[in-house]
Every structure is written in structure tokens, then in C-alpha cells.
Write a protein that binds this DNA or RNA. Structure first.
Length: 196
DNA sequence: CCACGGATTGGCT
DNA sequence: GCCAATCCGTGGA
């Protein structure tokens, strides 16, 4: 049974790759959240298909990018079958290659402080800004020339932490957030965020 | 370190 | 009109 939660946990540790011209941006996926419109009131797909969320209903293997708070984009990996309405929000990654370009995308400069380095990709909208993901990337194939996900050895279960999700007002008790234990790029952790 | 509020567009009721 | 799967700056302890 490959439901959205199994895929979400399998995604941890895999390499998210974004190709921009000659440049390869990549990072290890360290934090995700599952959304499932069939029982999850906080999912964009909960109330059925609309123009905005239609990619969530197109079946697995595509990127769902949405715009929120008037200024931010967030990226999801769609899973499941057609009309399942399941997706996995990429909340944080650990930068691997293309860090100078990420810094340009996010801060418009190449040299960044240790604090700025952590803030490159420790949140869903930060990942999109650093990886230059916006409206244009909504619906693109996850095995395309622009974006793909590389496999990696399976993480041991003891490294995976499960918790409730962040920043939502409905279905707040569902434990559908998964992240890699002790990773410095985990979002929503001020005590880690501020330190070198 | 922490709590709080402003930014700012667009989707949906 | 209301409010959002967020981020950042400010100000106080």
C-alpha cells in the first residue's frame, strides 16, 4: 500500500533537483507534510477541484505550486491516482549544489552569512524562492528537464520524526508532518534558526 | 529569546 | 469581504 504518508516518509533524504540553464540547484529533502483531500479539511483539495488546485487531482508525478499570503509560493509533490487529491508539501531542504545561485535568488547576493545560509531553505516559501519555483512551474512533470527527484538510500526509521503540521487552522491534530531528526534546516525552530 | 503584527495578491463565499 | 499549507522586522524582557 503506497499511500501519501508512506511516500512522504520515503521522500525524506531524497535529492530535489532544479535545473536552470547551465546551473544545477539541488538539496536533500529534510521536512515534508502530507495533504489528503479525502479526510483533511486543511488540504486545498478538500472542497473539490478548482482552477487553482487542479494539479492536485491529476495524479502523482507532478509539481503543484500555489501562491499564498499575497507574496509566497509553496511547492508540493502530487501523489496518488487521478482525483485522489493528495500532495506532499516540501517544507525544507538542505542545500547541496548551486548555493551561490540560491543566494542570488533569495538575497540578490552571492556571499551570505551562516544565518542567511540556514534561512535559504528552512521553510516552504524559502525553498521556492531559492530554487526559483513560481507559477510557471505549477503542473510540471517531476521527471522533466526542469525539475526531478533523485533517489537515495532509505533512511532508518529512527531518523524520522512525526508531528502535527504547521501554519494551518483546520485538521490541526493530524500527525502528518515528517522530518529528519536534528537536521539544522527544519522549519519553525527559532532556537536552531538563529544559531550558526 | 520570544511574541506580535504587517505585507500584499488572489481565491472563494 | 475575508483570510490564507508564510516570512520578516520590530520591540520588549
Amino acid at each position: 500500500m503506497r499511500n501519501v504518508h508512506i511516500v512522504a516518509k520515503e521522500l525524506l533524504g531524497k535529492i530535489f533537483v532544479r535545473v536552470i540553464g547551465e546551473n544545477f540547484l539541488s538539496g536533500k529533502i529534510v521536512e515534508v507534510e502530507a495533504y489528503d483531500g479525502s479526510i483533511d479539511e486543511s488540504s486545498h483539495s478538500y472542497s473539490g477541484k478548482t482552477k487553482r488546485n487542479e494539479v492536485m487531482f491529476n495524479g502523482g508525478g507532478f509539481l503543484y505550486v500555489y501562491f499564498t499570503y499575497g507574496m509566497h509560493f509553496c511547492a508540493n509533490i502530487v501523489t496518488g491516482k487521478i482525483n485522489d487529491g493528495q500532495a506532499i508539501l516540501i517544507r525544507a531542504v538542505e542545500p547541496i549544489t548551486g548555493i551561490n545561485l540560491m543566494a542570488m535568488n533569495r538575497y540578490n547576493k552571492k556571499e551570505i552569512t551562516p544565518k542567511e545560509f540556514i534561512n535559504l531553505t528552512n521553510g516552504p516559501a524559502k525553498v521556492c524562492q531559492s530554487f526559483a519555483i513560481a507559477r510557471m512551474q505549477n503542473g510540471i512533470d517531476l521527471c522533466s528537464d526542469e525539475i526531478c527527484v533523485f533517489n537515495s538510500p532509505k533512511l532508518s526509521l529512527s531518523k524520522i520524526v512525526t508531528s502535527t503540521r504547521i501554519g494551518i487552522k483546520k485538521s490541526v491534530d493530524l500527525p502528518w508532518r515528517y522530518y529528519i531528526k536534528d537536521n539544522p534546516f527544519i522549519s519553525g525552530n527559532p532556537s536552531i534558526r538563529g544559531k550558526k
